[in-house]
């Protein structure tokens, strides 16, 4: 084995040889992170980030495919007469990863939006008495009537769920309006 270099601060250490035999790590080589190696490390980091971007695009494409496939009519298993005025129910549409809220204002007025905040996808809490949907994560809020952001970090409106209610109170969901 080649003679190992010593760290400058350990030149006078009397017990050096003992531990050096047990841990034969060359101090100079260990600390030899020169600028060219650093450049390679930065380029490798760039490659990783680019791969991450491509992975995100692939995940988004898959999500869009799933949404397109499941964009169909769905009858909710709750009747409108079972919901009190101002009360809301949670359901999932168009897939099981997309929570939506249905809020009953009156017998003739029912609203439904995606429950994901358009800021960072936190679940929204409906506050019908205050006329808004509140995001507790960053104190944002959306207008209950229009889905437009009222205050806080969100800048885009909530995607609105299209639904119809028949004479018997049966609620049918048939699409989702993408927010502008």
């Amino acid at each position: 084995m080649d003679k190992l270099s010593k760290h400058p601060s350990r030149e006078t250490d009397q017990h050096d040889e003992g531990w050096r035999e047990q841990y034969p790590i060359d101090t100079v080589k260990e600390q030899n992170q020169n600028r060219r190696q650093f450049l390679k490390t930065v380029v490798a980091g760039s490659a990783l980030l680019a791969c991450g971007q491509v992975a995100l695009v692939a995940a988004e494409a898959r999500r869009a495919q799933v949404k397109q496939l499941s964009d169909k009519r769905m009858v909710l298993d709750v009747n409108l007469s079972d919901i009190a005025d101002g009360e809301s129910i949670l359901f999932h549409y168009p897939d099981e990863h997309s929570p939506c809220l249905l809020i009953k204002i009156s017998d003739s007025k029912v609203l439904s939006y995606s429950q994901k905040c358009t800021h960072l996808a936190c679940p929204l809490i409906p506050k019908a008495e205050e006329g808004m949907l509140f995001c507790p994560c960053h104190k944002g809020a959306f207008d209950l009537e229009t889905g437009n952001p009222l205050f806080g970090p969100p800048k885009r409106a909530l995607p609105r769920v299209q639904l119809s209610v028949d004479d018997t109170g049966l609620i049918t969901v048939y699409g989702m309006e993408q927010a502008l």
Binding site: V57, E60, S114, K116, T118
Partner: peptide, 10 residues
């Protein structure tokens, strides 16, 4: 991506 907005990803 987390907010469901995909136009800027590509």
């Amino acid at each position: 991506y987390m907010a469901g907005e995909s136009t800027a990803l590509w």
